[in-house]
Amino acid sequence: MQKETTFTKMIRLIILFIVLEIVIQELLAFNLVDWIYYQFGIGQLFSNFIYKTIEVVVVLALNFFITKQKIYLFNEFNWLKLCFWLFLILITIPFFDMPNLLESVTNGIMGGFSEELLCRGVILGVFLSYIVKKDKYSYHNLLISITGSSIIFGLMHLTNLTHTSLSYTLIQVLISSIGGLTFAFIYLYTGNIFYPIAVHLVNNWIRSSDTTNNIQSYSLALFGYSLVLIFIISLWYFRKHNPKLIELIKIDSKMSLETL
């Protein structure tokens, strides 16, 4: 009965977090930025920047007061991580001469930070912390946690119905849910939220570009295939190895028990 109550409490906290985040962003923040836009005549790019900055602050504040989930920034050098950063740099080079460079990069940064902090840093973190603290960690429960957080990530794109068609929004929901799986695997392997943020940033950046040459098309295709490859390898790898993120959560869980 106690386990059920604890699980129910976790779900209620996540629901409360998401509802408050959506209400604050879609009603309060949106109307505030809209008022600033017309009152002071700021540009669309700066308006989006203000809106996404508010979202980051809201996510961090709600996490502090409601979910209290630690967002991990584990930093340890290895050659695979170095190759990761070099790969992202090489992928983006063909897009530096795009006409809408500033807008694409800014949108990538804004979307990457807020959405990864929310869906991987907080929601996935809450799910994983629960199964670790309840000594229920298994490959099966790991996949359930990843899938659950990714579906939530996809469903949150339903808010786009305010300005896009139903069919297009549903496609966004599906693609975002699938992409969320890969972002989650990257966070699991590295134990550092900045890695999925970086991939999310690059993804938003290059996909929002007006592709004009073959090199950009090849880079875009290579990036997409790489995300699929990461997903497939991760499914095999985490069947046999504990993710770094799980190890970090276990350490924190053990330390919290020792201080009680």
Rank of each mutant, 00 (worst) to 15 (best):
residue 36 I to N: 00
residue 53 T to R: 06
residue 58 V to R: 02
residue 135 D to L: 06
residue 193 I to D: 03
residue 88 L to N: 09
residue 115 E to L: 06
residue 156 M to R: 01
residue 125 G to A: 11
residue 205 W to I: 12
residue 210 D to M: 10
residue 220 L to I: 12
residue 139 Y to R: 14
residue 205 W to T: 15
residue 239 R to N: 13
residue 35 W to D: 09
residue 147 T to K: 07
residue 89 I to Y: 05
residue 70 K to I: 09
residue 247 E to S: 11
residue 247 E to I: 07
residue 91 I to K: 02
residue 20 L to N: 10
residue 195 Y to V: 07
residue 215 I to A: 04
residue 153 F to S: 01
residue 207 R to V: 13
residue 40 F to C: 05
residue 168 Y to L: 05
residue 254 K to G: 06
residue 140 H to I: 13
residue 149 S to E: 13
residue 177 S to W: 02
residue 107 N to P: 00
residue 18 I to G: 00
residue 129 S to V: 08
residue 36 I to E: 00
residue 126 V to G: 00
residue 122 V to R: 04
residue 103 E to I: 07
residue 251 I to C: 01
residue 46 F to H: 08
residue 224 G to M: 02
residue 13 L to S: 13
residue 93 I to P: 07
residue 128 L to M: 15
residue 45 L to Y: 12
residue 78 N to I: 12
residue 238 F to P: 07
residue 256 S to C: 00
residue 233 I to D: 02
residue 101 L to G: 11
residue 92 T to D: 05
residue 213 N to D: 15
residue 191 G to E: 09
residue 223 F to Q: 05
residue 61 A to G: 02
residue 176 S to P: 04
residue 246 I to K: 05
residue 133 K to P: 05
residue 21 E to C: 03
residue 73 L to R: 10
residue 97 D to T: 14
residue 33 V to Y: 03
residue 248 L to S: 03
residue 16 L to K: 09
residue 159 T to K: 08
residue 236 W to K: 14
residue 31 N to E: 13
residue 173 V to Y: 03
residue 2 Q to C: 01
residue 74 F to L: 02
residue 117 L to M: 12
residue 252 D to Y: 00
residue 245 L to K: 09
residue 126 V to A: 11
residue 139 Y to M: 09
residue 57 V to Y: 12
residue 11 I to M: 14
residue 107 N to W: 14
residue 157 H to E: 10
residue 68 K to P: 03
residue 76 E to S: 15
residue 235 L to D: 06
residue 245 L to H: 04
residue 46 F to E: 11
residue 248 L to V: 12
residue 24 I to Q: 07
residue 137 Y to S: 10
residue 171 I to M: 00
residue 130 Y to I: 07
residue 18 I to F: 11
residue 106 T to I: 15
residue 45 L to N: 15
residue 69 Q to K: 09
residue 114 S to F: 06
residue 207 R to K: 14
residue 99 P to W: 01
residue 180 G to A: 06
residue 143 L to I: 14
residue 45 L to C: 07
residue 150 S to P: 12
residue 36 I to F: 02
residue 6 T to C: 08
residue 252 D to K: 02
residue 57 V to S: 13
residue 71 I to L: 05
residue 31 N to I: 06
residue 81 K to A: 08
